[in-house]
Design a protein around this nucleic acid. Sequence first.
RNA 1: GUCGCGGUAGCUCAAUUGGAUAGAGCAGUUGCCUUCUAAGCAACCGGUUAUGGGUUCGAUUCCCAUUCGCGACGCCA
Length: 603
Amino acid sequence: MSVFELKEKITSAIFKAVKEHGVSVDQIVLDHPEVESFGDYSCNIAMRLSKQLKKNPIEIANTVKDSLYRLQTTDYRLIIDKVDVVKPGFINFWIKKEFLWKMAVENYEFPKTGRKIMVEFTDPNPFKEFHIGHLYSNTVGETLARLHEILGHEVRRACYQGDVGMHVSKSIWGILLSCHSREGGNLCNNLLKLEKQSLEERIKFLGECYALGAAKYEEDEKAKEEINALNKKIYEHDKDIEELYQVGRTWSLLYFEKIYERLGMKLKENGKCFDYYYFESAASEKGLKIVNEYLERGIFEKSEGAVIFPGKKYGLHTLVFINSAGLPTYEAKELGLAPAKYEDFSYDLSVIVTGNEINEYFKVLMKALSLISPELEKKTVHIGHGMVRLPEGKMSSRTGKVITGEWLLDEVKKKVKENYKSDNETSEKIGVAAVKYALLKSGIGHDVIFDFGKSISLEGNSGPYLQYTLVRTMSVLTKIRNTKYEIRNKDLNSKFQILNSEELSLLRTLYKFPEVIKSAADNYAPNLLCNYLYDLAQKFNLFYGKHRIIDREKVERPARNPAPNTSYSGARINETRLFLTVKTGEVLKKGMEILNLPVVDKM
RNA sequence: GUCGCGGUAGCUCAAUUGGAUAGAGCAGUUGCCUUCUAAGCAACCGGUUAUGGGUUCGAUUCCCAUUCGCGACGCCA
């Protein structure tokens, strides 16, 4: 029996019991109490009915309890150990230990649903750097994708990249200037000379060009005009800059793939990390067409030479979709993107992960989409994640106040290496886990204030803590595997009864794993899974520190050679604890896989 | 100015969507390695949940006001 079935059984039993009182309720809330001494499940129905029935909640709770006892089915009797009515009017349920055990040991897998979900995330822009905001989006998006895969859905990953637009023309303008000042001759050849340099250096160069263009755009009227003109040229594939443009674009895209692989994304059939790549250059054509079509139908309006969506009519902002130069803005492109995605993969749900700074835009966008294609609008969900900020404020590529993803990963890796003297490969894995966990562990909506040294923790509630705990469980198992041992507590029936408080507490955490996955996925909240895994690891470490899995006193060591990894032949193993250890390891491993945290053998 | 989001321990964050005694980590103090990995464990310290009212059996959570911070508010994404 799964956790879900168990909960359903208790809920329906309560439902029946309540019905006996002649009242009907729309739903029964059944939760795990925070405090373990309040049982495994808790119901507040008596308090909710108190007003309606004009009776004391305790009284109601007691009669419900009596009805439960009278109505009980064999299933129910099998599951429930004890029911209690407490103070304000809670009805608390204790599950038989045997069942807790069964649920914990069972490897629950969610059945395939056939539901098709597309998740769009990361969305870095070619010609600009991949900063820690992209790192955040990638980490969150990948975990959301994995959570939905675990739930049995068919998931596709999408990445939408801005290969046209003002930021590109600013970069190109910067490149033109930089390449000119180096030498004369063919611009593209000058750029290609950089090919000898590492990809990282070339990307850095592009970033600098952007900063240059962006700064001049604001300072220099002439530069501004040139950049605006360039923007149009890029849209029109003007042959003067096309070659240059393609070179830079290719470098960027290659570079992004390298980072995705470093972050542990799996390669797809196309040999890349995302299933689908969308570009603004393509979306803009579709978007233009759609907006123009619906301009005639009166959904959009002309105003001051631009095409706008009158959001004010619907209590939202009015936004420009096609600017006065005839070019589509972000909003129009997004309108083009939705049907393009649907053509590739006829999804039931489209999840779009972006920074929360565009939350307001998205509301407008969704309103416009609902008038154009209501069925697509219904299938679309926008998740705005918090922005990554530096202690001194917002990041800005223009002023160079940017922390790139690679820099962060490298620095953390270095710190791990220095602090713990671990080898290169291990340090990399620990560093990646530390960075990702730091981004995943808090709620998705809030901004993340990034402060190196404070933000990325290697101990306490951190990625390495989970890795370390997993290593501990594996270490016990290897030790046992290499050894002949006797198992104590062979008697299965007695096993459930004699659990000490640490064992019981671990068991009560273990069986909840599938519930946590479900609620993390349903709420788009990876932090729920982080919280759970951390709690589990803490409980395991407490248990581990307090109790022996392999009996110490039975260890026979060769008298002359008391090395720590000698044979443990003759050691006795507590089977209950062994199972708890195995299970903890499994859950940790699975959970870390969903969070996409690398696993290490030793630390 | 209008709209949206937020304010929880010195710092960074939780709190099962209205539940029981508001919990962790970091920082600080103190113990624990000849015993399955000390990136660990235990203990202490730390709170008028921004402020004031309201709704009810019950509020960090919902409503109103005040205040502070961030974002958006017509041609960037």
